[in-house]
Every structure is written in C-alpha cells, then in structure tokens.
C-alpha cells in the first residue's frame, strides 16, 4: 500500500502524459461509455468511474483502480467512439497502465505474469500466435472447423501458396534483418525497459535471445561484405 505522497506522484505521472488533455475534456457523467463497454458487462469495471476519478483527482481511488480494475479494459475504444464529450476512457486506461508498469506496481506484475509465454513469442518472433500453439480444445469459439488443424501441421502449412507462411512455429517467416529492426524498435520505445520492470527473468531470457540474433545478423553482414 502506497502512502498519499506516492499516490499523488502516480497521479502526477498520469496527468503529465502528453496525451492526457487530449483524452479527457471533462465528463457529462452520462454513462454511455459504461453502457457500451464490453468489459463492463463481465467485470466490476466502469469506464465512467475511471474518467470521474481522474477528472475529480481522487488520487486514492485512482491508485485503487490501478490495482485491478484498469486491467479489465479490452482496449477496444468503443467508449471513445461513443462519448458525447469526445473523451477516450480507453486511452486514459492505456496511460494508467503504462504508469503502473513504469512504476513497477506489484499488481501490474501479478496481472501480467500469465502473459509471459505470449510476450516471449511476440518479442522474439514478432508473432503473437503461431500454428503450433493452437490446440483445438482451447478454441471452442472457432467451431468444428478447428479440427482441421489436428492433421499434420507441416503438410497443411505447405499447402499455403505463400512461401513465408509455410511455417509452423511462427505465423509467418520473419527475416533476420526485420527481426533486428523490430528489436531496435522494442528497445527504443521502452518496451524492453517495461518488460525488465515487470518480469526480470523473462527479460533476461529475451535479452539473451536478442543478443544472439544480433550477432547472427552482424556475422551475416560480414559474410555479405566478404563476397
């Protein structure tokens, strides 16, 4: 539990984000955002409440909402498309999440831990979901056709007439050069720093992986020069 000064600091971080004034104009307290919010139907979460807490600068309740509630948002931005005051509750949640991560809140670590496997895949390969991750039992919403992926994946993927998609452990083939560019983006935009804050072990694994790939790339460049 943070003390008041810390909670005020957290709010100041949120408020000083360059997007803040653009996402929050005030609030008519009408509830259109909550009424159209898919997450509000399933969780104890109301975008109007988030907006009201920020607008009235209720730093204690803002801190409280950052423990769990803000992670219920699906970032679909329906609220932003509907708000009669042209606020973006979802955009505000994005800022709050970034602050929660930058400040290393324990609650953020707890919430994000289950996503470690996806994160590893995403950062190392640039793909979120790969064919070999799909297990029919986990995707009932795909209907009976899901059974088709139970065959020999390698053969099935070979049938796709696009060479870069004939892969199994990534959704498509990413060239070494593209990968290295992607790592540079992760680094420069602070994604890796956020990751280090949230999960040091995962960060170490990913960092090693990236270093290795970068070396491969350097070697490849040298080879090209020699030719």
């Amino acid at each position: 539990m943070a003390n008041y000064a810390e909670m005020q600091q957290i709010f100041d971080d949120i408020r000083s984000d360059f997007r803040y004034d653009h996402e929050l104009n005030g609030c008519l307290n009408c509830g259109v955002c909550t009424a159209t919010c898919p997450s509000a139907h399933f969780y104890d979460y109301s975008p109007r409440e988030i907006v009201q807490l920020l607008w009235t600068e209720n730093v204690e309740q803002i801190y409280d909402a950052m423990q769990e509630k803000i992670w219920a948002c699906a970032q679909c931005m329906t609220c932003a498309a509907r708000c009669p005051f042209k606020n973006s509750p979802g955009g505000l949640v994005a800022i709050m999440r970034e602050v929660a991560i930058a400040r290393g809140l324990q609650s953020a670590k707890d919430v994000l831990r289950p996503f470690g496997r996806v994160m590893l895949k995403l950062i190392t390969t640039g793909n979120q979901l790969s064919p070999d991750m799909i297990q029919p039992d986990h995707f009932p919403d795909w209907g009976p056709n899901i059974q088709k992926v139970e065959g020999d994946l390698k053969v099935l993927r070979k049938a796709i007439p696009v060479k870069t998609l004939q892969t199994v452990d990534t959704a498509w083939e990413v060239s070494l050069k593209t990968s290295v560019e992607m790592y540079t983006i992760w680094e420069m935009t602070g994604v890796l720093k956020s990751l280090e804050m949230m999960d040091e072990n995962l960060f170490d694994v990913i960092e090693d992986f990236i270093d290795e790939k970068k070396e491969d790339y350097e070697d490849w460049l040298e080879e090209q020069d020699e030719d």
Binding site: C30, G31, T34, A35, T36, R48, P84
Partner: peptide, 21 residues
C-alpha cells in the same frame, strides 16, 4: 443515465441499454 442504444427483444418489446450510474 444517458442511454447508449435501443434494440428490440424477441417479443417485440424495446430494449434500452444504459449505465445505472
């Protein structure tokens, strides 16, 4: 509450969707 949407149910009645603030 400001209403977000008006739809209809199977029996022809109108359904009003909003937030109970």
């Amino acid at each position: 509450a400001r209403i977000a949407e008006v739809t209809t149910s199977g029996d022809g009645r109108l359904l009003v969707k909003g937030e109970d603030t």
